[in-house]
Every structure is written in structure tokens, then in C-alpha cells.
Amino acid sequence: MEQLKFDYPSANRWISKRAHVGIVGSGDMEVLMEPAETGSAHVSIQTSVNGFGSSWKAVLDRFFARFDGAVRIHINDAGATPGSVMLRLEQAVEVIEQ
């Protein structure tokens, strides 16, 4: 079990909705995305697979290179691949930007 935290101060656009997507099944994960009152983005991850901190950072860096919402994200992860992680994050964005 590993807890990871990342902050993205440049993501500061106001967001009003929240989103919950995904199931914590094997090789999958859930994303909870909600407005962050701090005016920047914060990500916390709880994952059953240890030692992939740099992969998480790489995926999140790519995600926040395109997405600028001030959101608080929590992820419960049961071993999603980087591709699945990005897909789940994009699904969450789709919900909040609807």
C-alpha cells in the first residue's frame, strides 16, 4: 500500500462540478474529482502497487499540461496501467466540463 501526493499550482481555473468515475477492480481505479478551494490542483493517490511514484508523476504531469482546473483529485488504485489512468482522468474531466 502506498500513499502519494502531488500538487499542480498552475492549475487554477475555477471548477464548479465534481465527478466520480471508475471501479477499484483489478487493473482499474476510481477517480474522485472535485473543486479545490485553494485555487490550485492537488492529487492524492492510494495504490495497492508500490514503487511506481515516478510513473504516476509522469502521467499526472502530462494530464496537467493540458488540464488547468483547480481540482482536488483522489484516486484509489488497484494496479491501473498509465493508459487506464489517463483514460479515467479524462472521463472525470468530461463529467465536470459537461
Partner: peptide, 10 residues
């Protein structure tokens, strides 16, 4: 679950 290295669900 986390005590047993299993990810919980919200």
C-alpha cells in the same frame, strides 16, 4: 483492506 495492501473504494 489497506491494512492488507488492498485498495479500498470510496
Amino acid at each position: 483492506l489497506p491494512m492488507q495492501s488492498i485498495a479500498p473504494q470510496s
